[in-house]
Nucleic acid binder design. Structure first.
Length: 527
DNA sequence: ATAGGGTTAG
């Protein structure tokens, strides 16, 4: 593979990357600058492989920097130049750069072709710009498995599980030959949607077609873990002869912890050297289960192995202590951290919020946003802050934060943020403002709002005895979900009970019984 | 050009 590259005598290097050592990039570009000419074909392909090699080594900035030099030196670049550049853009934050590169591709006629377009589909989906992803996908003339797979994983990445399954169904209709990449994304989709039946079917397809079982096996193990079937996950692991792949074991161990199979988890941990990744995901399991005792044991494992200087692990520990009610411990860890990321700040805010101290949560949030701060709050941060305000009834602070999110940080609130904000307004008794908000949202969304919004509106109307608006929300909710969803009936009957329309309550309960619908059981941690 | 481990939320 390196045969075509020039041999250089001495590259006593600081660089660990093989390709980096071979190509004297700077000289090449400077040379091209001097000649005021196009790069030769050979030089261009050398530089192109240099672009990909930067990307492979996790240095997208290197790819972009080199690309800019090349762009200055030569007016005519090939599609082999653009694909790694798009990959680099996708890893970096600003969508603006990627769009500029796309524009340049169009200008240079390098935008056609399945491979270039697939790179575009992937980049836009990593930005979260699914509309553009789909537009590019539709413009691909010869769609192959890879372009379909990119669309599919794009939906998955952005939390659109149903749409991802839709893509899979379309692939089936169009008789596309499915690859293991397809199956992998579909299993992950089933895990995120927690749909057991379809996931099992994909598992069957994998078994029947006998694909690469380590990667797919890992995806299947985490699928079974996320639907709570640890015995099935274990069977997959055993059927692969207790494979010692680290990723696979990590997935199985954190699945055990999530599902409270602690004995099995610690037995499995002995099968490999302890690693930071498995401890972090295990801590997340402890957080979810509020299991302080296991969390402390994992803390000990981390101490014994010298992992406690790892900042991601510290975030996990801090979150675990916070979720398990150990606010002092969480706070101590937070103060001791040398470099605090968005995740650290968000976890700390969440720790106060979940322990009922909304005021303190806001205080930390304000400190995070202080002038000259090096971290920026993200969508998750605002969700935590808004839910803290909703729980603590901090109406003014909630309004301020919601405004800040849009104006100062240019973040686009998602459904969850609106739900929290409606909760806050509801606590303030301000159904007028809620109604204005809903009106604006309907205008912007073609009169189509997600169910979660109507649920929040309905709750607000129950709380504030706003009968007419509540009935409107109830109607929209029924339209949106269809008659199969039992929890909607419960929600509606609670609303009618709150406003005193007992005949409606009876009617709904009757319907529920007649259909034989049973509401999925919720559970409380403390009973 | 696409795929496996839920650090923050839900």
């Amino acid at each position: 593979m390196f045969a075509c590259l020039p041999r250089l005598g001495d590259f006593a290097g600081k660089s660990t990357n093989l390709l980096n050592r071979f190509v004297p990039v700077r000289n090449l570009v400077a040379h091209a600058d001097h000649l005021f000419d196009e790069l030769s074909q050979r030089d261009l392909s050398l530089l192109n492989s240099q672009l990909s090699s930067h990307l492979r080594c996790g240095n997208p900035n290197g790819t972009l920097a080199l690309f800019l030099k090349m762009h200055r030196a030569s007016p005519d670049l090939s599609s082999h130049t653009f694909t790694p550049v798009l990959g680099a853009c996708a890893l970096l934050s600003s969508p603006k750069t990627g769009r500029q590169v796309h524009a340049l591709m169009i200008k240079q006629g390098a935008e056609t072709g399945t491979i270039s377009k697939t790179a575009l589909i992937d980049m836009y989906s990593k930005y979260g710009h699914l509309v553009d992803s789909v537009t590019v996908f539709e413009s691909v003339e010869d769609k192959d498995v890879v372009s379909w797979n990119s669309l599919l994983s794009g939906f998955l990445r952005n939390g659109k599980g149903k749409e991802a399954l839709g893509v899979f169904a379309a692939m089936y209709r169009e008789t596309i030959e499915i690859s293991e990449f397809t199956l992998c994304s579909v299993v992950k989709t089933c895990a995120s949607l927690k749909i057991l039946q379809q996931g099992k079917q994909v598992h069957a397809m994998v078994v029947v077609t006998g694909r690469d079982l380590v990667v797919l096996g890992t995806a299947i193990i985490s699928f079974y873990s996320s639907v709570g079937l640890m015995s099935e996950a274990m069977k997959v692991y055993i059927s692969l002869n207790y494979h010692t792949d680290e990723v696979m074991l990590n997935s199985l161990i954190s699945g055990c912890i999530r599902n409270r199979k602690y004995k099995e988890a610690f037995l499995l941990m002995r099968r490999q050297r302890p690693n930071v990744r498995v401890l972090i995901s295990s801590l997340a399991g402890c957080s979810d289960n509020s299991d302080l005792w296991i969390g402390k044991q994992i803390h000990c494992v981390a101490l014994r192995n010298g992992f406690v200087s790892d900042s991601k692990l510290c975030n996990g520990l801090m979150d675990m202590y916070g979720k398990c009610g150990q606010i002092v411990q969480a706070c101590t860890m937070f103060s001791a951290m040398p470099s605090k990321s968005v995740v650290s700040w968000t976890s700390m805010i969440g720790a106060y919020a979940v322990n009922g101290d909304g005021v303190k949560a806001i205080e930390i949030f304000r400190e995070m946003c202080k002038e000259g701060s090096e971290v920026l709050p993200n969508l998750v941060t605002f969700l935590v802050v808004l839910s803290a305000c909703a729980h603590a009834g901090l109406v003014e602070e909630g309004k301020e934060c919601f405004g800040m999110m849009k104006e100062r940080y240019r973040l686009v609130p998602g459904t969850e943020h609106y739900v929290c904000f409606i909760d806050i307004l509801s606590k303030a008794g301000d159904t007028e403002e809620i109604w204005r908000l809903v009106g604006r949202l309907m205008e912007n969304n073609n009169r189509n709002l997600p169910c979660a919004i109507w649920v929040a509106v309905l709750n607000a109307c129950s709380l504030n005895m706003d009968v007419s608006r509540g009935e409107y929300a109830a109607m929209m909710l029924m339209e949106g979900t269809g008659p199969e969803n039992a929890s909607i009936y419960v929600l509606l009957s609670n609303f009618y009970a709150a406003i005193g329309k007992w005949d409606k309550v009876e009617e709904l309960r009757g319907k529920l019984k007649k259909k034989g619908l049973v509401k999925a059981a919720g559970h409380s941690l403390f009973i």
